[in-house]
Design a protein around this nucleic acid. Structure first.
Lengths: 232, 232
DNA sequence: CTGCCTGTTTGCCGTGGCGCAACCAAGTCC
DNA sequence: GGACTTGGTTGCGCCACGGCAAACAGGCAG
């Protein structure tokens, strides 16, 4: 509907190898939608009606267990594709995506997916790479949860957040969206009090600086060594 | 090289939606290779020279951590695609695949992948589904490791093995390849002694029956209830 | 300015499951 | 058929974490 500016998205990995006209074609079928902070873009087990590219903001994707516990699957940053349930053969979303700040996304109807990939085979190839790298991440996480204890898991989680959404500030690198200790707990399979204790310990060593829904990493390299289990 | 019989593989999900001639074409580029029990089909961090479809046997895919611990990623059953590192944009294998029994696989050179998907776009779509369902599995595993304690995790792991490779026998369902308690431990993030204790307890309740490298599930439904954390 | 709400800190206690280790059993190799 | 190897069992002590709960602090609304 709305004419979306090519220049915003042409360079995204999703469109790698496609001609500008092809990208235009695809964009013409998309809508740009606003999601205010706190709202859900889609819901676990809900009909997988659409797939998305995040233009602006940040999303928290989580799974809810039968007994009501949440597990954070990942955070979505601008430029990333998400909600590709249909492409991987599902009819419902496997998780919930929630805006942690006001966000904007491009939205395509899932129904269009088969036609789009038929017309632009590169889409399937690019999506395969995306899903593949998420598979890697998930496996990395499984390995970490199997072999590392809490402190190192938390260190790895924080470093991953830095890599993905780190913003340089005077004091170091800051994670550039609001994130709670509870979130970190749900990413690492720890409990909130435990995360709080670990971060407090790091803070007193000058490794990080805290704040309400804020984490600033002052010594990324030291944190890295800690994550790898190396001395000092 | 060797003419592989269509009928063996034509119905695999990997080839869904392809015409028989196309499948023939693909098969002509593949070689059929034997992997004796205990040998590695490919090795973690090794050059991703090939991708595969397992025709016969069973593989154990695992990751090795820097400090030498193994984590089992999955077991491969006949008919499954594996080693698709190249397709997901890697140049090396992220894990090691090892034959747990004498096995046979179809082997394609990775270098052929780009050409094959260009000629048969359905391949990318089908692979996307495969990788997608593995991503789901991995996420399920993360959720389990985050929220469940060992006994339930082991129950889930065993049930997954049953679903994937269960063979009906008089006493119940048997996992139809040799699997050790150590393997189960490496699938669930537990230690071998703990797995042994849990299985012994189940055995004394008549839930399962053991044996060297053997597990027979006598009461799948009761095990399921246990896995879900339901009483009795 | 004053509550209220949400997120954070901290303390204390209980325990699940790990580490270690000794012992045992079933194949298998010569 | 005996020795060796590989996998399984079981006991014991310990400690990292979770559970719970109370107290605390930013930040927003009225």
């Amino acid at each position: 509907m709305a004419g979306v500016d090519q220049s915003l998205v042409a360079d995204l990995p999703m469109f790698a190898g496609l001609a500008p006209e092809q990208v235009d074609q695809l964009l013409q079928e998309a809508q740009s939608v606003r999601y205010p902070k706190g709202t859900n873009v889609f819901q676990q087990d809900g009909d997988a009606h659409s797939f998305f590219i995040l233009l602006h903001g940040h999303l928290r994707v989580f799974k809810l267990t039968p007994d009501g516990q949440q597990v954070v699957v990942r955070f979505v940053s601008p430029g990333e594709v998400f909600g590709v349930a249909m492409a991987i053969g599902r009819t419902t979303y496997p998780a919930t995506a929630q805006a942690v700040v006001d966000s904007i996304a491009l939205v395509w109807p899932s129904a269009a997916w088969p036609r789009l990939v038929a017309t632009h085979p590169g889409l399937a190839v690019n999506t395969l790479q995306t899903v593949g790298s998420r598979l890697q991440d998930a496996h990395t996480r499984v390995v970490e949860m199997s072999t590392e204890q809490v402190e190192r898991r938390i260190a790895h989680a924080v470093l991953r957040l830095v890599r993905q959404s780190g913003r340089k500030v005077e004091a170091g690198v800051e994670i550039d969206f609001p994130i709670t200790r509870q979130d970190i707990a749900e990413m690492t399979g720890a409990t909130m009090p435990t995360v709080s204790r670990v971060l407090s310990a790091w803070e007193s060593q000058g490794l990080v600086a805290g704040g309400r829904q804020r984490i600033v990493i002052r010594e990324p390299h030291k944190l890295f060594l800690l994550a790898e289990g190396l001395p000092d």
